[in-house]
Nucleic acid binder design. Sequence first.
DNA 1: CGTAAGATTGAATTAAATCAACTACAGTGG
DNA 2: CCACTGTAGTTGATTTAATTCAATCTTACG
Lengths: 287, 287
Amino acid sequence: MASPDTIDGRWGPVHEGIGGDAAWPPRRPRCIEQAAAGRVAAADLMAFLGLPDAPAYHDRAFFACRSIRQGEVPVRTGDPCQYLYVVIGGSLAMRIIETDGTERVIGFQRAGDTLGLDGLATGHYASESVALEAGTLAIIPLGGQGRGGQPAHRLPTFVCHLLGRQIIRDKATLAVMAATHALTRLGAFLLDWHEHGADNGPSFELPMSRSAIASFLGVSRETISRACADLGRAGIVTVRGNRFTIVDADALHRTAAAAMMPCPHHGREASAGRMRLNTEVRELQAH
Amino acid sequence: MASPDTIDGRWGPVHEGIGGDAAWPPRRPRCIEQAAAGRVAAADLMAFLGLPDAPAYHDRAFFACRSIRQGEVPVRTGDPCQYLYVVIGGSLAMRIIETDGTERVIGFQRAGDTLGLDGLATGHYASESVALEAGTLAIIPLGGQGRGGQPAHRLPTFVCHLLGRQIIRDKATLAVMAATHALTRLGAFLLDWHEHGADNGPSFELPMSRSAIASFLGVSRETISRACADLGRAGIVTVRGNRFTIVDADALHRTAAAAMMPCPHHGREASAGRMRLNTEVRELQAH
DNA sequence: CGTAAGATTGAATTAAATCAACTACAGTGG
DNA sequence: CCACTGTAGTTGATTTAATTCAATCTTACG
């Protein structure tokens, strides 16, 4: 593809992770089997995503599916947003081209994740996703003609769920990106990948190159390399190629400690390092 | 990152289409006037947000409004997500408490932004927003009882727009956060704040402290201070307290370079934003 | 095998964090 | 009214971490 060391496709066995969010996708082979056959039952897709059975799309019994090959770009920047895609299998890298022409990875997508959400507001996709490996997508047609390709009819409730989930993930990522240290970012990334994966085991395979991780985390390739080596030397994670095995989960959590969204209620008082946004805050908290 | 208003993106003055609605808060005094009276016409709110006139919520002629004082926290982490709020006036900081107890700003919200979106998927807000100054919010009730407080009835299409916009902003912010250099992040932040503001003039006032900016951008307070001073010395921006005046917009864009663009495919690889503080500043002064 | 892209490691350089001092300012209370 | 207090902000010196440049190693694949 472009210059050497890009994110584009790569080898590696199909890591058929099931990702998406928090604790939903309990893995639904049925969905995957169906998808291979070219379509998936709406109800099964809902279950796959952890959405309620409610017939948010009850007039449509099935969604069409399509296969994608490694390196394929099912969603392109600027294209009209006519469909959303739910990843059934495989994984993709979401990327933009910055003003200086460089490529920037702004996210990865796995089973349970949705492609095309950034086109809803304007009617045109704002980014593009390239397949890191072969996979399958369920096609969610956006029937609406409204401004910006807004979804019409009964679909919106369903789409709202997909969007709402993505919002949380993006915010959490944002918090991680604010972490200064590369090791923290990498730790959070690995934990995220592992925890959102289908496998319960401590071992998993990353479908993307070090360069893609580096671009996403905003550090240099070399730093990713070194950070991986550091994790290995510390006995926290075993790294062999793209296969990672978590040895000391606690330590990894501590390494990544910094962000992670689902945080409890607000308000522990006077904790260390807590910053004050303005003087009024304390006043109101006292009440 | 922010959620609502964040650094996000939309740099490049022209790209339309991408990066949030190009020219949105066209400022609708009518909406603001109404809000002060405790309610706002649905149609006016739509116009305020740049949404189509379509009666997405046609059975509700008005939305209730509420005032908030500085320091108030209208949306709290963990609280059930029963409402969304559209900011009519004022500004807020969105924050989470990290695992180590420290506070992290993940975004700022201003007129036209929405509060509470991160509660849609789970039914509970995942963050909280504290008012940086007095303001007014329009209250969007989520009637739905479905899992996770999903919006029901006719509302979803409207909510989809709010979500879709937020997704774009968050992704753009993510790209900025991947820029390694503090000056780049600050530049993008200032440009975003300026371009999303109602005023056309080159001057604007930031309602948040340096610490809040630092927390959001993931750098230290001192670095923010120094970066502000550097921008001033370079003649790019005049800084006096919280009032910023853009002197050389081009230079500021160049400083912030690293944007989201609806541009074609492929380019070079990006790892970490470049931009040398001293050399670049000198260079810019030369022009 | 040989090549080439990706990944790793090393050394030098540079940016940012950290530590620390100091200024500015608002609010408090004597 | 003015000193006293605490917070925000700035600036300087030092340390730490990551980038950058460069060389080497590894692996996939023709």
